[in-house]
Design a protein around this nucleic acid. Structure first.
Lengths: 136, 136
DNA sequence: TTCTTTTGTCTACAAATGTAGACTATAAAA
DNA sequence: TTTTATAGTCTACATTTGTAGACAAAAGAA
């Protein structure tokens, strides 16, 4: 079995936890019930599933639960983007990146750092990448 | 309802179809049963689900089915990567792209074209992007 | 201290997904 | 033409996901 993916609904919860740091269910219910129009039960269910998956951790404060993220936000993003790329034909990596970069918001310093890594990568980059979809 | 996602197993099928162009179930069974260690039934089920979702189309050749992709490969990739980015905090777009670029194979011309779009984007790029995770 | 709200834990249930067997109509082989 | 291998369509069934109600315990309000 491979690591479970974070599902669409779970991302919503995780992002709030990452943004707030440690937090309580009431705070999460407060925010997510408005934002996502979910019932409190739904949010509680998601919280306990995320704990099962060990994506969240719990500390007890009396009888209240304090939730905190058990994984680093950036690591979660890296992993999930990497997974998408793994489902793709590698011949399309370039254009896909091109297209996504066109469509999202990036700061100047983001851009600079990406250009930087691209330039470094260029030295050892192959002339072409070839399709492996039918292999193995 | 939003457009259904392509699932992990479905991607495997779609990629073979994209690579082969029009094809038959026997050819797909041949390739995927080896590659994925799936039974022929599994592959047939996936094919018919993909047709239901209108990601594949069928032409009849006698009583055989000829399958073909009903969506463009690049469009499918663009859409699915875009979806992942939509689940993310936009403050992490830059680093995520940086990390994924480091980890995948890109040709020199891919790299050039991405640098190109980045340079264009830089002119109008903001100094910073800000987190919207708690908004709305 | 009794009533009410909050929290937390269980249970529920439909839809989507992963995976595959059963049955049927052909087509190919013997 | 009888046998056999195929391809296609249905049905099946466990898991995961989306979504939420029921109920109990504890905390706060009256």
């Amino acid at each position: 079995m491979e690591k479970t993916d974070i599902t669409k609904s779970e991302w919503e919860v995780m992002r709030i936890v990452w943004t707030l740091g440690e937090t309580t269910s009431s705070q999460l219910i407060d925010i997510l019930s408005k934002k996502m129009d979910w019932s409190s039960s739904t949010i509680k269910t998601l919280l306990s599933r995320l704990c099962d998956k060990e994506l969240l951790g719990i500390k007890k404060d009396g009888r209240k639960n304090i939730y905190y993220s058990a994984i680093k936000e950036q690591a979660a993003y890296d992993m999930s983007v990497k997974r998408v790329f793994e489902s793709m034909c590698c011949m399309h990596y370039g254009e896909t990146l091109h297209d996504v970069i066109e469509s999202i918001e990036l700061s100047k310093s983001d851009i600079d750092s990406i250009i930087d890594v691209l330039k470094k990568k260029r030295d050892t980059a192959p002339e072409e990448v070839h399709c492996k979809c039918l292999e193995e």
